[in-house]
Design a binder for these strands. Structure first.
Length: 257
DNA sequence: ATGCCGTGGAAACCACGA
């Protein structure tokens, strides 16, 4: 079973790229972030024609998350992270597919830091950590996939010294990620490639992709018995080189059936 | 060191992203 996560940076502007990638790689389940479309403008028909059922939580202009599945319609559990009814951003959707709980998340960017946006990021992270603890305690198969907007270690940044004060790499955020993982989750890509430089994001400018000046910020966290089923994973790096592409590349993992 | 690029929405610029 192949599960992918992809920050599309505008699901409609990116539709040709998304459909081509779906056609070429045929993931079973896909978590999408940054739809940048309200609910009614999600390209449901095109995605259905590509062979996928979908649930999504859109929002005008920004954010927006979706879960696609080839086999069955994802059974929605919730479409917001618990803990703040005032939070209006569409950044989380959770469903089960074939008995696996899949949380699709788009963690706030948090820049500029310090400031209110960074505070929001820290609070959002705390809510995620509280929710993940509840999921973990249920002892069910769980995947928390998406754009975490965190480089976990120096290995995950092309020039760490330039990012120390950035909201994606500040000590508080790396520490929050570490605390989350320490509940018992497995960072799937890091488990498969403990020492390799792997990036999932490349800025549009300064030829970041050509220079391999990237960041690893899109992650899969796996619950213990899914971690045992992990057999492969990687980044579809070449997609980042396509025309009219997102600044993120799709990331995928393969679980033994 | 830096939105130099890109998107969406409203308005012919702005907010936002990482």
């Amino acid at each position: 079973m192949r599960i992918a996560t992809y920050n599309v940076n505008g699901v409609n502007g990116r539709l040709p790229v998304l459909l081509r990638w779906l056609g070429e790689t045929s993931p079973d389940v896909v978590c999408l972030q940054e739809l940048k479309a309200p609910h009614e403008k999600f390209p449901e028909k095109a995605i259905q024609d590509a062979g996928y059922h979908a649930i999504w939580h859109g929002q005008k202009s920004w954010n927006g998350v979706a879960i696609l599945s080839r086999h069955e319609k994802p059974k929605e559990i919730c479409r917001a992270l618990p803990g703040d009814p005032e939070d209006s951003h569409s950044r989380y959707i959770e469903a089960t597919v074939r008995g696996i709980h899949i949380g699709c998340l788009y963690l706030p960017n948090g820049n500029p830091a310090p400031g209110p946006k960074f505070d929001y990021k820290l609070r959002w992270f705390e809510r995620l950590t509280a929710h993940s603890a509840e999921l973990f305690a249920k002892n069910v198969p769980v995947i928390l996939a998406g754009d975490y907007n965190v480089m976990p270690t120096e290995l995950d940044v092309y020039k760490p010294e330039r990012w120390v004060d950035d909201a994606l790499f500040r000590p508080e955020i790396r520490s929050a990620f570490k605390t989350l993982v320490a509940q018992g989750w497995t960072d799937a890509i890091r488990k498969l490639y403990p020492d390799e430089v792997i990036y999932t994001f490349f800025d549009y400018f300064r030829n970041a992709y050509g220079r391999n000046a990237g960041l690893r910020i899109d992650h899969f966290l796996l619950s213990p018995h899914l971690s045992k089923r992990l057999v492969a994973g990687g980044v579809d790096r070449e997609v980042r080189g396509w025309e009219k592409t997102s600044d993120h590349a799709p990331v995928w993992i393969e679980l033994e059936d």
